[in-house]
Write a protein that binds this DNA or RNA. Structure first.
Lengths: 153, 153
DNA sequence: TCCAGACTGGACAACCTGCACAGTGATTCG
DNA sequence: CGAATCACTGTGCAGGTTGTCCAGTCTGGA
C-alpha cells in the first residue's frame, strides 16, 4: 500500500506541514520530483484526504467533548441523520453495533451548554433513548503516525 | 472569539487548502496582509492547530473503525494509557464519565484483525472489562465548519 | 478629541511551484 | 536473454507566491 518513503513523507508533512516539497526533498535526500510524485499518488489513492487546517473546538470556546449513544426508532435512520446534521455541535456520527444505534461525537461550551445541545439532540421523536458520556480528559490525543508506521511492509 | 472574516477564511482554507494567502485575499476581497494577519492570529490562539495532511486510515487498508470502552482497575490509568499508546491501531483515547473508564477509537484491517487488536488491548491485566462497538457506517463525517459558523457572534 | 489597533495598497527580494526533459537503474514480461 | 516499463535523479525555466517592510486610512473606545 505505502512504502517507507511514503511513511517518511507523511511523517514530515504531519510534523512540519508548511515545509514545502523542495525542503522535504532535501530532508529526505531524494529528488524533488519524487516527493511531488509521491504526494500526488498519496492524494490520488486517498491516503491523504486533504490539507485542511485542523480546527480546535476548545480554542473556539467549545471546551466540553461528549459522546452520545442514541437508540432510534426502526427505519428512522435517514430522518434522524438529517436532524443530527443540522446541529453544528454534532461533529461526527456513526452507525454502530451493540446497545445503541448511533454514536455521536458532540461538543459544547460548558456543561450547561451540553444540556442544551442534548436537548436539541433528543428533540427528535424518533430518538428513543440516549446515553451520554462526557470526555473528562484526553489520554491519547488523535494521532495517525503510529498507524502509518505500522502500515509499512 | 472569532468574527465573520475569520470564519470565511477557515471555510475557504478548509474547502480549498492549497489556495494560498494571495488567492484567498482575492476571493475574500481583502488585502493580503489581512488574511496573513488573521491566519497568524488563528494559529497563535490555537484555533488552527495545524495544517497537517488528513490521513485516511481506510485508504491505508484499515477499513474497520470501532470504539472500545474499557473498565480499568483503580489507579492504573497511567500504566493503561502507556499500554494503549503503544498500540498503533489505537487512534484516540478519552477518560469518560459513565459506565466505562476509558473510551478508545481504534481501527483494524478487517473484523479478524479487529479481534487481534482487541486482544492486544485487553492484554493489560489492569483492564477489567471491555465493550466494543463496531462502526458500521459513517452517518455524519467528521466536520467542523458548521461549528465554526455557529461560533461567529 | 485623540489614540491604539486593524485594514489597505504597494513595493521588494527570495523562494518555491509546476512542468518539462534526458539519463539511469531495476523489475517485469515475452 | 533482450526489450519494455516504471520510478527516480538532476537539471532548467517561467511564473507565481511568500515574507516582510512601509505609509496612509479608518474605526471604536478612552
Amino acid at each position: 500500500m505505502i512504502d517507507a518513503l511514503d511513511a517518511r513523507i507523511l511523517e514530515l508533512f504531519t510534523s512540519e506541514p508548511r515545509i514545502g516539497v523542495l525542503e522535504a526533498s532535501r530532508r529526505l535526500q531524494v529528488a524533488r520530483g519524487t516527493v511531488q510524485a509521491r504526494l500526488d499518488r498519496l492524494r490520488d489513492t486517498g491516503v491523504i484526504a486533504g490539507f485542511a487546517p485542523t480546527v480546535d473546538p476548545a480554542a473556539l470556546g467549545f471546551r466540553v467533548t461528549a459522546f452520545a449513544s442514541l437508540d432510534i426508532r426502526q427505519g428512522a435512520r435517514e430522518s434522524v441523520a438529517a436532524h443530527l446534521s443540522r446541529i453544528p455541535e454534532v461533529l461526527e456520527v456513526h452507525t454502530i453495533t451493540g446497545q445503541g444505534d448511533l454514536l455521536c461525537r458532540i461538543v459544547a461550551r460548558d456543561n450547561d451548554d451540553l444540556q442544551r445541545v442534548i436537548d436539541d439532540l433528543v428533540g427528535d421523536d424518533d430518538i428513543v433513548r440516549t446515553t451520554t458520556l462526557i470526555a473528562l480528559s484526553t489520554v491519547v490525543a488523535p494521532r495517525i503516525l503510529p498507524l502509518v508506521a505500522s502500515a509499512v511492509p
